[in-house]
Each structure stands twice: as structure tokens, then as C-alpha cells.
Design a binder for these strands. Structure first.
Lengths: 197, 197
DNA sequence: CTCTTTGAACTGACCAGTCAGTACAAATCT
DNA sequence: AGATTTGTACTGACTGGTCAGTTCAAAGAG
């Protein structure tokens, strides 16, 4: 077992427990036990509980950002708003796979103690949304004074909330259906009859 | 000072501290101190830390539900989708006023320990959204097989996320502008040129 | 031989909940 | 009227337990 393996097992154990009980409510002993390592190993690898959590946030945000960025990039000739759909789907898939991370992200991220992580999330994951929206503005698909910052947050939060709710209350609902509903919402097909009328 | 006063002071102190440090990270001593009462008073009034938090969630969810329901009801002759805009604005206003509650709601709500509160939120606040969407379906403003449940969660989460982000990172941004952006997003004016093209 | 992990023992701080006692106002008694 | 009781709200020192972090000798792995 490499050091990398150990760290990943600790990440997984920590994120699950923190999703259930919160950061302060999760003991290092419990994390070590679930990861199947000794308590000393946690401190050998991360130095402190805080440092473990900080590394965990970084790790997750980086993976999330990469997932979204990848979805945003292909196919490269697609219109900005088509790429937007792909990013939403990527985000749903990511939180489908790493559900507890979604809860941790929303639950613990806004504390002043982890402001750095918030900044990285903004620059990373939210940045992917914001760049697509900015591209759309430039391509004339959106009007010039559109508030891409707020819209990026809204889209991200929409997918995040739906992911968590689906996981907790409606795990049987197919991801594709959820995605279809969100895409309709975004593209305004929902209010089509109003627009027409 | 009535008992009601004391309880409200404890609610306010608790929600602020829990928003900053999480439930497990917040001590009863700290809550009592910020509320300006003795520690024993907390237990006299609520019996336990858990019970205080549970009562706090109930209280907040009830207020939120009432705010949204009121916004959904006036003017009663408005179209469902016009009332939807009003509800979104009401939600933004509510979390603007009770910001820490928004963070607590999302941070702590999904733990299995507080499943009852999730249920009440669904039936209450999310129910307001869902009922409007159902009305819209019935009025022919939305197609028949539209997934009102997922859409309700998405709209709620959108407003919630934007509220939190605005409070933490962009408190100077006027609420009306944020609302305008969200309404555009919902009504699909964002992709108007695509629809047209 | 070095890097990593183990697991147990320990410390000192911290914390939820307890409980005996205070304050005081309204009701009841004489 | 004054004296006494009752009930409610609150107080804060105290307790018993918990937990992050330390230390270390021994074992395992590459």
C-alpha cells in the first residue's frame, strides 16, 4: 500500500463521516477506523485534522474543476450554450459519484476558516460556468450586460441542490431525467408558451 | 423579559454561531454567552442542545414557508409564472434578512439526524414552488409531463445558493439585480437569440 | 537501510448536561 | 393588611466523559 493509497482512503473515510456528522462532530479516531489505518497514520500523513480537511477540500475541488472543464471543452466547436448543458451534466455526474463531497462542500465551505477553498472553488468550478457564459455573451447568444457571475452561481447551485436532494430523497430517479429538466429550465423551454403568448 | 424573548435570543445566537462553526463546533456555553443568558437557561428552555437546534430549524422553516406562501398568494389573479417570480424574490429577501439561517439550513439539514426537518422543508417551502409549477401545468403554461418536483428543488437551490454567495462574497450587489438575473434565467430570455435562431 | 505504518498509552483542554440555589411575582392564607 | 406558599425563570459552579494531538517502540514494506 503506497502513501497515495493511504491518503485516498483517508480522504474517502473523512468525507463520508464529515458529510454525516460535520467536521467538528467527526473524530480522528473514527476517520482512521473507517479508513482501516491507525490513528498515528493520520497525523503522519497530514499533521493535523485541519490539514487533512483542507487537503480534502482542495482535492475535491480540483477534481470537480477538472470534470467541469473537460465537459466544457468538448466538442470544441459546439455553441457556448450547448457546452453549458454538458457542464451541468458533468456536475450532476460528479456529485452522483461523489455524493458526500457535495454535502461537505456546501456544509463546511462557507465558514470563514476555509475561505481559501471558497476562492479556489470560485476560480475553478464556478469559473468554468462563468467563462462559458462570457463566451456566450461574446458570441451574441446572450445580451451584453448579462450578469455572468450571478448566473454562474445560480447554475452551479441549482445542480448542486438537485444532486443532494436526489441523493437523500429520490435516489431512484434517473440522472438523465433530472438533467433534462434542468436543461429545459435553463433554456427557457419551460415558459415557451408564455414567450409565444 | 419573557420566556419568549429568551428563546428568540437563543435562536438568534445559536443560528449565527452554528452558521460560522457548525453544529458540533458550537458550544452551548458560547450560545448562552452571545444570547446574554446563563448556560443553565438553555437547558431550562430547551432541554438539550439537540432540542434547541431542532426547534431552531422548525422555527426558521416555518417562517420561510410563510414568507414564500404569502408571496405566492398575491396578487391572486396573476399567472402562475408571475407568482413564481414573486416567490423567488421573497426567498432572496428572506435569506437577505436571515442570512445565517440559509447557511445553517444547507449545512446541517442533510444529516440523517434532522430528517424530519428536511421533510417539513419539502412540504413547506419546496411545496410552495411545486404547487405554483403544478398550477402552471394545469393552466397550460407548462407541458404536462414536466417534472415539477425536480424543478422546484432547482429553483429553491438556485435562490439559496445565490443568497449565500452574495452574502459571503458580494454583499454590495443590489438584491433587485440578482433577482432580475434569476428571473431571466428562469424565463429563458437568456437564450432568446438561440430560440429565435 | 529508509520510509511508512502500527497501536497503545498518555495529556490537557474542552464540553454537554446537572443541580442546588437565587429572584421574584402572583396566589393563598390568617 | 401582612405573612406565607407556590411556580416560573434563571444562574453558574461542578462533574464525568470525550477528543485532538503527542510519543514511541516495534513491525512491515520497498
Amino acid at each position: 500500500m503506497t502513501r497515495e493509497d493511504t491518503r485516498n482512503r483517508l480522504f474517502r473515510a473523512a468525507v463520508e463521516l464529515i458529510a454525516e456528522q460535520g467536521f467538528a462532530g467527526t473524530t480522528v479516531d473514527a476517520i482512521a477506523e473507517r479508513a482501516g489505518v491507525a490513528k498515528g497514520t493520520v497525523f503522519y500523513n497530514f499533521g493535523s485534522k485541519d490539514a487533512l480537511f483542507s487537503a480534502l477540500l482542495d482535492h475535491g475541488i480540483q477534481r470537480l474543476t477538472m470534470s467541469l472543464a473537460e465537459a466544457a471543452g468538448v466538442p470544441s466547436d459546439a455553441t457556448p450554450l450547448a457546452r453549458l448543458d454538458a457542464v451541468v451534466l458533468a456536475q450532476l455526474r460528479f456529485f452522483d459519484e461523489y455524493g458526500p463531497f457535495a454535502r461537505v462542500l456546501f456544509g463546511e465551505m462557507w465558514r470563514t476558516a476555509w475561505q481559501d477553498a471558497v476562492t479556489r472553488l470560485r476560480e475553478g468550478a464556478l469559473g468554468v460556468y462563468e467563462r462559458i457564459l462570457a463566451d456566450a455573451v461574446e458570441a451574441g447568444e446572450l445580451r451584453e450586460d448579462f450578469d455572468t457571475g450571478t448566473a454562474a452561481t445560480a447554475l452551479f447551485g441549482m445542480a448542486l441542490t438537485v444532486s443532494i436532494e436526489r441523493r437523500v430523497l429520490r435516489p431512484d430517479r434517473p440522472l438523465e431525467e433530472v438533467h433534462a429538466t434542468l436543461v429545459e429550465l435553463i433554456h427557457g423551454r419551460v415558459t415557451k408558451s408564455v414567450e409565444a403568448g
